[in-house]
């Protein structure tokens, strides 16, 4: 075992000289950008759709009952499906219906489906953190729903929404590693590629781990900073314990 370790070390040194060259650096950098881009597109769209979903979920009236139920069903379902399973489901559905989407697009669609559900829950918890009396008061002053949202609720809720939403985004940078399984050429796939070329796993996957860390850690710190900056006295306890936010908030710490 001890000798084995020395052998590994020799191989490692030998391969390193070959591995750490400009071309590979460019290749890995591109893969890293793919990882980042699909996370940004997926979570960005997820945020927009999440807002729409919450808006429908909170629209009162009997007429909107089917819409509300659909939205609740959607959110509850897609928060409970593993990302890996969803990826394959989306891929086979796209292919089964003969659609000509790139693997990158398939990955983005999958991310949007999941992030809409999760970020929707985070936004809902944020809106709930603004006390009902603020709605009543605005109501009594003849604010419309949109006016109340725009002038009263959103200016208070965004501080509660942003930290967990950002934590979700940072977490998803790591979860996009699974898209390598449908063949997207992102960071993990790049690691597999080099490993298959015969480079040691310590070298190929080790390098990829470091690159993920470089992507994720500064943003984690940024998230902490944001959380500390935006933490207000008025913040409602409910928002912190509302689930959806919880799992991700914990992952962010």
């Amino acid at each position: 075992m001890y000798e084995g370790f020395l052998d590994i070390f020799d191989v490692f040194l030998e391969q390193s000289a070959e591995f750490y060259v400009w071309d590979n650096a460019v290749y890995l950098f591109r893969a890293m950008m793919t990882t980042l881009t699909m996370t940004i597109i997926g979570c960005g769209l997820g945020f927009i759709f999440g807002m729409i979903v919450v808006y429908f979920r909170r629209t009162p009236g009997l007429m909107f009952w089917p819409v509300r139920m659909t939205v609740i069903f959607y959110v509850e379902t897609f928060r409970r499906v593993p990302f890996l399973v969803l990826l394959f489901l989306v891929m086979f559905t796209v292919k089964g219906f003969g659609l000509d989407f790139s693997l990158f697009t398939i990955a983005c669609i999958s991310i949007v489906i999941i992030s809409t559900a999760f970020i929707g829950e985070i936004i809902r918890a944020g809106l709930d953190s603004v006390h009902q009396t603020q709605w009543d008061t605005a109501d009594a002053m003849n604010f419309s729903r949109l006016q109340t949202l725009r002038h009263v609720i959103l200016p208070q809720a965004w501080k509660v929404v942003l930290p967990p939403a950002f934590a979700f985004f940072v977490m998803f940078i790591k979860d996009t590693a699974l898209t390598s399984q449908v063949g997207v050429l992102e960071l993990t796939q790049a690691g597999k590629y080099y490993n298959n070329l015969g480079y040691s796993a310590i070298l190929s996957f080790g390098t990829v781990l470091v690159l993920y860390f470089i992507l994720s850690y500064p943003m984690t710190r940024l998230g902490w900073w944001m959380e500390a900056r935006l933490h207000t006295r008025r913040r409602d306890e409910r928002a912190e314990f509302e689930v959806g936010a919880t799992a991700y908030e914990l992952r962010g710490t």
Partner: peptide
């Protein structure tokens, strides 16, 4: 009706922002 009435609440309910 609300255009002609105003209400003041027990808990003030000022807009916090």
């Amino acid at each position: 009706l609300r255009d002609r009435f105003s209400i003041v609440f027990q808990q003030f309910n000022l807009f916090q922002n």
